[in-house]
Amino acid sequence: MAVLVVAAHDGKTVRSNVANAVTAASQMGPEVHVLVAGSNAGEAAKSAAAIQGVAKVLNAEDAAYANWLAEDVAPLVVKLAPNYSHIVMAADSVGKNVAPRVAALLDVAQVSEAIKVEAPDTFVRPIYAGNAMATVQTADKIKVVTVRPTNFKAAATGGSAPVEQIGGTGAGGLASYVGAELSKSERPELTSAKIVVSGGRGLASGENFKMLEALADKLGAGLGASRAAVDAGYVPNDYQVGQTGKVVAPDLYIAIGISGAIQHLAGMKDSKTIVAINKDEEAPIFQVADYGIVGDLFQIVPELTAAVEKK
């Protein structure tokens, strides 16, 4: 049986993590289909069809799907589910919202944030903020799985799967979309950036994050933060890296003024190279850092910004 990847998108393209989810899905079954539900999502459906390894794209058009309300999208996925062995979503804010609703409607368990596919019914997932790894096996006929995108390589583009139009299931009237307050940024998206510059309580104010922006812009990096910095109001919530925020695994993670609570480490310790800049040499962040500098970040960061070449 085929595996169905449910893709989030912005109307024009599917999210970049769909390519990672396709890789995970291809390890679960012989054929991968992608569902692109939306209102005027034809372009997004085409972008899904271009992901290598996708055998078919299902494009469901319905005004009800315009804003990805779980109450309206879940019934569509449930309707399609009997044709599939697995329902797969990236473990982002859309997948985390929709997938459990689908699983409960199907009366099956969900495997959350799988980081490895051991067998079609067996997955490895982090628990306790990544301080333990559980290998779990599901006996359910339809397996609902969210996958952590950073643990699966993105499938390449260049495919040309057929796009099939399917009917929608309409609006249930339980929820309606009002609007969004999205952070505007020209920088690379945090979870897919090659380099991430991240700031913590040590920055002492939102104003001081400008210093990190300068470094990030020079490196072509995404900008992140610890929970402490978000709670203090220095930066918006979508900057948060950690157990309950975003999980990143860039080639280079630069932690600035971040002490390194286990909840933060959970979101970044899979980074290839970690740099820590902190005035407290006992800070736990140094235990996971490949390179650490003990010192005043207000001196070190501008110096570092001046020393690196513009990307």
Partner: peptide, 20 residues
């Protein structure tokens, strides 16, 4: 519904160095 086959320690990062 999920059978836990095993629970393991995550791979440890080897500790790095401090630069001046």
């Amino acid at each position: 519904r999920l059978k836990v086959l095993k629970v393991e320690e995550p791979p440890k990062r080897k500790s790095g160095i401090k630069v001046k």
